[in-house]
């Protein structure tokens, strides 16, 4: 199990514990964390699980894939630390991960 903290655009924090291997998107959906939609079910195909990775965790979450890059092209409010949560899978190394959500998923 690892811990993820989701921070809504209004500052509300949600901490959840999930099995390793589960994607950060699934972690939110399984625990009814508001602010992550995940319409495509984790196929990197809708960009409705857009999150901002807390800077100190960025080196551990890896790089965007080409498809992820293409999908983020059309998301709102994209920043250099934007990622799609379905493309990040929890590991022991990511225990304690902090991600922030945009105002809405689009």
């Amino acid at each position: 199990m690892s811990h993820v903290t989701f921070i809504e655009a209004n500052g509300t924090e949600h901490g959840v514990d999930v099995d390793n291997g589960v994607s950060v998107m699934e972690a939110a959906i399984q625990n009814s964390v508001p602010g992550i939609d995940g319409d495509c079910g984790g196929n990197c195909a809708c960009a409705t699980c857009h999150v901002y990775i807390d800077p100190k965790w960025a080196p551990l979450t890896g790089e965007r894939t080409q498809m992820e890059h293409d999908m983020l092209e059309f998301a709102e409010g994209v920043e250099p630390n934007s990622r799609l949560a379905c493309q990040i899978h929890m590991t022991a190394e990511l225990d304690g991960l902090v991600v922030r959500m945009p105002e809405s998923q689009h």
Binding site: D39, N43, A45, C46, D70, M71, F74
Partner: peptide, 11 residues
């Protein structure tokens, strides 16, 4: 979770 809007870059 439905296909009506399409998926991918043309969603």
């Amino acid at each position: 979770q439905h296909l009506s809007f399409g998926f991918g870059i043309h969603r």
